[in-house]
Every structure is written in structure tokens, then in C-alpha cells.
């Protein structure tokens, strides 16, 4: 078995030599959540876009300010229309389905993932969660 300097998740084991892990990198912190959002009244897709772009930008800037390394930051809004945001710590890429711009929403599923090297999962989780909540609160 190859040498590790990180711990594996308990459900994962390497029982055969050919299936073993042999990397020697440090694990990044991962923040990954799914939220079913319901709004008091219909909001425009542009408001959702602005709020989530703000969140990606805040995580990116906080990561860069603290000299951490962004693996990636991704957002996917799933509904009748879809929105996809991504950043590797520089610009924010925005893609959406054809009818996104004309869409009004009262219910949507939001998936977010941020992978960052150099910090603990707890720290990333606290910062990302607080920032996400603040950005979503700005929608209503």
C-alpha cells in the first residue's frame, strides 16, 4: 500500500494493490450543499443571478485575500430554467439556459460547491454559509 498523508473517508478502503491510492497531496476543504429555496413571491432570474454572483465573488475574494488556492467554486440553479456559475479564483463564468433571462421564480433548487486548498473545512463552511445566507436574504 502506498504512503498517504491524508486520511480516507471510512467507507472507502483500498483492498487490492491495483485499486490503491498513491497521491501525496493535501486534501482541500470542501463546502457542498443543496438548498430548496421558496420565495414569498416571484422574483426575477436577474435577482437570483446577482445574488449568486455576489456569493461566488465574495468567496473568491476572501480566498484570494487570505492567499488560499481556489480549486473551483460552482453554482447550479435547477428549475424550469438553469443557471451555472463557476470560478477558479479569477473571473466568474456565467452560463444559463435559453429562457433564463425571461424567467420569474418562486421555487428553485440551488446547488453550491466550493473547493479551497489551505484552510480547514470548518472555516470554509462557516464563511461560505454565512455569505450564502446574506446573499440569499438580499433576494426577497
Amino acid at each position: 500500500m502506498s504512503e498517504h498523508w491524508h486520511e480516507h473517508l471510512p467507507e472507502h478502503s483500498h483492498q487490492q494493490p491495483s485499486l490503491e491510492c498513491s497521491t501525496k497531496h493535501s486534501d482541500p476543504a470542501i463546502f457542498s450543499e443543496t438548498h430548496d429555496l421558496a420565495f414569498m413571491e416571484k422574483v426575477t432570474s436577474d435577482k437570483i443571478l446577482q445574488a449568486l454572483t455576489l456569493w461566488v465573488g465574495e468567496i473568491r475574494d476572501w480566498t484570494n485575500d487570505n492567499a488560499y488556492l481556489v480549486g473551483h467554486i460552482k453554482v447550479f440553479v435547477e428549475g424550469q430554467e438553469n443557471l451555472w456559475l463557476s470560478s477558479t479564483g479569477r473571473s466568474i463564468n456565467i452560463k444559463h439556459s435559453q429562457g433564463w433571462s425571461e424567467w420569474s421564480i418562486d421555487r428553485v433548487t440551488l446547488c453550491v460547491t466550493a473547493i479551497v486548498f489551505g484552510m480547514s473545512k470548518k472555516t470554509l463552511g462557516e464563511v461560505a454559509q454565512e455569505s450564502l445566507q446574506a446573499c440569499l436574504n438580499g433576494i426577497n
Binding site: H12, P28, E33, W84, T113
Partner: peptide
């Protein structure tokens, strides 16, 4: 994918593609 909230699979499914997901586990292997 890494992370509990799969995103790439949803992007591909939104394009009408047939996708199987494998989540969690060791990030490197």
C-alpha cells in the same frame, strides 16, 4: 464528483445526456 451537491452531473443532464453519478469517497483515487 467531489462534494455532496453534484453540479456537473446536473449540467450534463440539463443537456439531455445520460449520466451516472459517483459521489464521495477518497478525492484522489
Amino acid at each position: 464528483e467531489v462534494g455532496e451537491a453534484g453540479i456537473d452531473d446536473k449540467i450534463l443532464k440539463a443537456e439531455g445526456l445520460s449520466v451516472r453519478e459517483l459521489f464521495a469517497g477518497c478525492i484522489c483515487c
